[in-house]
Nucleic acid binder design. Sequence first.
DNA 1: TAGATTGTTAATCGATTAACAATC
DNA 2: TAGATTGTTAATCGATTAACAATC
Lengths: 214, 214
Amino acid sequence: MRWKKISDAVVRRLPLYLRVLDDLAHKEKVKLISSQELGELAGVSPALVRKDLAWFGEFGKQGVGYELEYLRHELRRILNLDVNHRVALIGVGSLGGALTRYNIRRYRENPDFNLHIVALFDSDAELIGSEVEDVQIQPLDVLEQTVEDMGIEMAIITVPASDAQTVAQRLVNAGVKAILNFAPITLHVPDDVQVASADLTLELQRLAYYLVEE
Amino acid sequence: MRWKKISDAVVRRLPLYLRVLDDLAHKEKVKLISSQELGELAGVSPALVRKDLAWFGEFGKQGVGYELEYLRHELRRILNLDVNHRVALIGVGSLGGALTRYNIRRYRENPDFNLHIVALFDSDAELIGSEVEDVQIQPLDVLEQTVEDMGIEMAIITVPASDAQTVAQRLVNAGVKAILNFAPITLHVPDDVQVASADLTLELQRLAYYLVEE
DNA sequence: TAGATTGTTAATCGATTAACAATC
DNA sequence: TAGATTGTTAATCGATTAACAATC
């Protein structure tokens, strides 16, 4: 079952709902949750929660609410998080290394996380051959081959801005369909490739706007 | 000069425009830029570029375009990036450390960057007293005092989810007005405090939505 | 002047909210 | 049954685009 044209605004909120449900599943013995409660915890209006979910089916019961585990399961399915996805990370500097450690540890604790960094690349000869959380850092030469051999679908770019577009191009050529980009540059990719920008400087600068001196 | 109620959608694009102008200022000898060009490089329509800028004044010349250095200067002023801002980072794990190194190196290269991590905090006794890029890691006990003494306005939270809300509360009490939050939890803060969420898992999960197996 | 591009208004588009019938 | 909450439609709100007069 696939859905035609769900707006990006809707898709952005789904992982947020899932995060709330995951937290509740761990902490409390809650079995049911209303759009009211879910909305409060996610910072979204109850009407919007219902409307977002309704795009994908009828998951609740009138007068009752949503069965927590069922909704959680459905959200994971909708987000394709019910199957495992292999991820490559390019640029194993301190940020890239930190993200790798975080991801792999999380995956080890809970393999159902289903997003797994399985390959690391860097152009620095000093780094090649060394390991982060048991994953060897490889030279960029073998990028395409490795992506294809391992069935890698997503990539995280943590290289300098000057290299980011070239790396993105090579990833796209190798068949990667989703990129999380930390480099401070707008990547140009075909329409069927999704890019999420994670330029943290942009976020800090945006926050500075609200720092009005009294 | 302050502006009343500029929408968040507009504010989000300003750092993006600034990034484009900064890049051009370094690379080329471009003196003028049209809304067409700026829009192309920022991934925004020309009409929207003009409308966004017009909220803050008249920065261009009809038939000519925008003078690059002037617009850059004005954007920095609008974003409060013409004055220096001190930033605290709480949770010096591998992600926090990476962000600190990146920020401080960038600031050293170019102090006009004006966003500067000047204080680090952690609860781990092992870390306290050690340094990252010449900034000592302090115990959380002195958080409030240090924020006040140093005139810290912004904070970056890179602690575990379980500690994030408490840390946020303490930061708010100490007078911090903007928080960049990497913990996977929705922070509850007063209306006059701005929070930007940087939960990278949320971004990866969102990207997974688009990975439809053929 | 002629050509180009801004600043701005009106039109369109899309997203959110309000409201309520359906129903558990 | 009575009370509660979903799913959905209509109303509202806000953001983007189109268009063009102003003007450099």
